[in-house]
């Protein structure tokens, strides 16, 4: 009896050996996720703390949220960040869409140089871009403030828009646009009525992502902003340098919720247009 079973058992064991789940890797992944979310969870948890402490949780309270909504300086920062992000996103989208269309369609030396220049801001550390922008703005005599922050954020985000949209533009079927032209549309009409609607889901996703990035950006804003009001991230930075500030927990939690809502939007919108996916924005395919 046992003699007949043994070969099967060995085979099964061997097969399991090949497919065996890598427990060590799973454990590492679990710890990784735990540590990745721990600080964020802590910030969210302590934003409801009844006390000023950042280590002892005592009682549930919304006082830090109330404090935030009564802090005129923080509110002014929030408004500035929203305005900068909106304006910069709009500019970056217009330029980025144009660039993506142009880059894909101009094969040749200009196109490849341009593609290279596009990548430069992506691989430059932000502090270098920040210092460069500051030096440039000051060099040409601009006053630091809303305008300089917006300009710096636009230059930084154009590359992201273009990189995200390029693959979509490349995937477009050029024949649809040619068909429009054959049917008597002008170039502008073909762009407006055929090409842009096809790109719309990708444009919206790119816009949402870039908006979130600009809103959260700290380094560029830090170097290019004036004194008052400061963008929200810069304001947070000055506050955490001073020490325990539970209001920041509340602000951070609200910002996190905002970002999550935006990501959800970036994923959902392309699906509304009947495309599967959308998640590739996160996974980078």
């Amino acid at each position: 009896m046992s003699a007949t079973r043994r070969p099967a058992a060995t085979a099964r064991r061997r097969r399991r050996g090949v497919e065996r789940k890598p427990l060590f890797a799973f454990a590492c992944t679990a710890v990784f996720f735990f540590l990745l979310y721990l600080p964020i969870g802590a910030v969210a948890l302590f934003s409801f703390n009844g006390q000023k402490s950042l280590v002892v949780m005592k009682g549930f309270s919304l006082r830090w949220y109330r404090a935030f909504f009564h802090d005129q300086q923080l509110l002014a920062s929030l408004r500035m960040s929203l305005e900068v992000s909106t304006l910069a996103t709009a500019c970056a989208l217009v330029i980025g869409v144009g660039l993506a269309l142009g880059l894909v369609r101009s094969r040749g030396r200009v196109g490849s140089y341009a593609a290279f220049i596009m990548l430069v801001p992506l691989i430059t550390p932000e502090i270098v871009t920040g210092v460069g922008s500051l030096t440039l703005f000051k060099g040409i005599g601009m006053t630091l403030g809303f305008g300089t922050v917006t300009l710096a954020e636009v230059t930084f985000s154009i590359s992201y828009v273009t990189v995200i949209l390029r693959s979509r533009v490349a995937a477009l079927n050029p024949e649809t646009e040619e068909a429009a032209l054959d049917l008597g549309a002008t170039r502008w009409q073909a762009l407006r009525l055929v090409t842009l609607p096809a790109l719309l889901p990708a444009i919206i996703s790119a816009g949402v992502l870039v908006f979130a990035m600009i809103f959260d950006d700290f380094v560029l804003a830090f170097f290019t902003t004036g004194v008052s009001p400061e963008p929200l991230a810069v304001n947070i930075y000055s506050q955490i340098r001073l020490g325990v500030q539970p209001t920041i927990n509340a602000v951070g939690t609200l910002m996190l919720l905002g970002s999550l809502a935006l990501i959800a939007l970036a994923i959902v919108v392309p699906r509304l247009f009947g495309r599967t996916g959308g998640l590739e924005i996160l996974t980078g395919d």
Binding site: I40, I236, G252, I263
Partner: peptide, 11 residues
């Protein structure tokens, strides 16, 4: 996508 400063502050 959570703010870098807030994450570092929590950490």
């Amino acid at each position: 996508f959570a703010n870098y400063l807030v994450r570092m502050y929590g950490w």
